[in-house]
C-alpha cells in the first residue's frame, strides 16, 4: 500500500486529494475530494493522466498569421510534447472556422486538433 497526494484540477477550488494505491498500483481509495469529479480525476491521474493541449497553427491568407487550436479531447500527458511537434508541422489555408479539424487523429490517439477561432 502507498499513498499519493494530489491537487485536484477539475475546477478552480483545487481540493487536496489523497489516493491510496495497492501494491499492483490499483486505486483503493480516494479521500479529500469534495465532488465526484475529484474522485474520477484522482483515479485517472494515478493510472492514465491526460491533459487538454492548446497551441496555434500557421494560417495563410487569413486576418492573422496563426490560428489557435485545441485537442478536441484530452491527450495522454506524456504525449504533449510529441503532439506539439505534429501541430507545428501543420499549415492551413484561410478561411478557418471555430471547430474545423486542422489535424485528425493526432499520433493515433483518436483525438482531433480543432481550430478555436475564426481566421
Amino acid at each position: 500500500m502507498k499513498t499519493k497526494d494530489l491537487i485536484c484540477v477539475s475546477c478552480p477550488i483545487g481540493c487536496a486529494v489523497t489516493v491510496t494505491l495497492n501494491d499492483n498500483g490499483e486505486v483503493v481509495s480516494v479521500t479529500g475530494n469534495t465532488c465526484k469529479r475529484g474522485d474520477s480525476y484522482a483515479r485517472q491521474e494515478c493510472t492514465h493522466p491526460e491533459r487538454m493541449l492548446t497551441s496555434t497553427v500557421k494560417v495563410s491568407g487569413g486576418r492573422l498569421p496563426v490560428v489557435p487550436v485545441k485537442s478536441a479531447k484530452p491527450v495522454p500527458k506524456e504525449l504533449l510534447l510529441s503532439c506539439m511537434k505534429e501541430i507545428n508541422k501543420v499549415q492551413v489555408q484561410a478561411p478557418v472556422h471555430i471547430g474545423d479539424v486542422v489535424l485528425s487523429n493526432i499520433l493515433n490517439t483518436g483525438v482531433d486538433i480543432v481550430a478555436t477561432n475564426n481566421a
Binding site: 478552480p12 487538454m52 496555434t56 489557435p68 485545441k70 478555436t116 477561432n117
Partner: peptide, 18 residues
Amino acid sequence: IHTGFGLHYFGEELSGPE
C-alpha cells in the same frame, strides 16, 4: 488560447476565443 473558460457559466471547458 488555453482552455478552462466557461466551466461555471456554460458547464464546458472552452478556450478564450471560443
